[in-house]
Design a protein around this nucleic acid. Structure first.
Lengths: 182, 182
DNA sequence: TGCTACTATAGGACTAATCATATATAGGAC
DNA sequence: GTCCTATATATGATTAGTCCTATAGTAGCA
């Protein structure tokens, strides 16, 4: 499971709690590449601990709930490096809009265009989020090796949205010039 | 769940068995837009029948197992049309390669390039599959309304792979000119 | 003769992910 | 005073999807 390895990667950078992982990582820079639910993060931490890939220290707090701080172990690091170099199967993408469009011939043109325009709106928002992320450009000489990797990831995510938007615009134009089926 | 509605759409075209759905639809033209496991198809048919959206007639065969032929009902058709016009939430994409690349700075350039090249190979195969699908072009005057929709779907899937390939090639070039971190 | 593949349905076990809720204290808003 | 948010962990229930196996007759291959 990749989530487990993403968490190992984050704990390799520094020790963190489940709460830290959620609020500082999965809700921030990791959000556009691996969304994860709070409940799933905690359960994955349990599994990683059971595997011996991370260990836990409890920080007692009195005004707030105690913190369970997780640290990666040597075997955890080894497992992470192994995963990092292992080619993973392509993810399976199931896009409901494409499923709808496959059967859309029975709808009037305006209904199809309406559907595509709602998608366009949602995708525009997502592209805006991608473009709002602040990572130095690839030609920037100040960019660290880490930042360059993050930039590459961001560029694919952005280009993917751009491709979707271009296609949506073209699709809308094409549907609009189709003879109406009434 | 979209799988249920894809099945409704297919049963609206003609009555079919679970086996037909798997071998003639989900393994063929639907494959590039909604992969589905045989077990899940049968279980979804059960749910659709319980909902009253499809009905079943058993065709008794003596040399082979009996066939359970499913037909869409009026309420099933209504539900399908409702779904067809309802905007669906954007699917969440979790791409293990992007997760790996996010943490790849600690790997030597050659290891990163190796990972990207394996992905390149897999994505090339997928693009080839997309291009092997035979649907008439959008300007083809003979193309039916249905075929035009299928063409639009195919074009997005193909362009998506093309975008991924272009990015992979660019990424490989960029990694190769990075100073090695030894 | 045994092996595999095709036709056809179905269930058990499991993984990955989501949603809702519970606990407990502190602090700010209205 | 009440409500909401933040901090922090945890569990129950459910959904979506995968993998494996069972059943049972036919047919082709070597």
């Amino acid at each position: 499971m990749s989530l487990a390895h993403v968490i190992l990667g984050l704990l390799q950078q520094q020790e963190r709690t489940g709460y830290d992982l959620k609020t500082e990582c999965f809700n921030q820079c990791i959000a556009h590449l691996w969304q994860a639910d709070q409940a799933q993060i905690y359960r994955t931490l349990d599994k990683l601990e059971a595997q011996g890939w991370i260990v836990c220290t409890v920080e007692i707090q009195h005004d707030r709930p105690n913190r369970k701080v997780f640290q990666i172990t040597e075997s955890g690091k080894a497992e992470f490096i192994r995963w990092l170099q292992t080619h993973q199967p392509l993810p399976i993408l199931r896009d409901p809009l494409l499923a709808q469009l496959h059967f859309a011939a029975q709808l009037p043109n305006e209904a199809i265009v309406h559907l595509l325009e709602q998608e366009l709106e949602a995708r525009r928002e997502k592209l805006a989020e991608c473009e709002a992320v602040d990572v130095p450009s690839l030609d920037d000489p100040i960019a660290s090796r880490d930042q360059k990797m993050h930039r590459l990831v961001l560029e694919l995510v952005t280009q993917r949205e751009q491709t979707y938007l271009n296609w949506l615009q073209k699709a809308i134009e094409i549907i609009q010039i189709q003879p109406s089926d009434t």
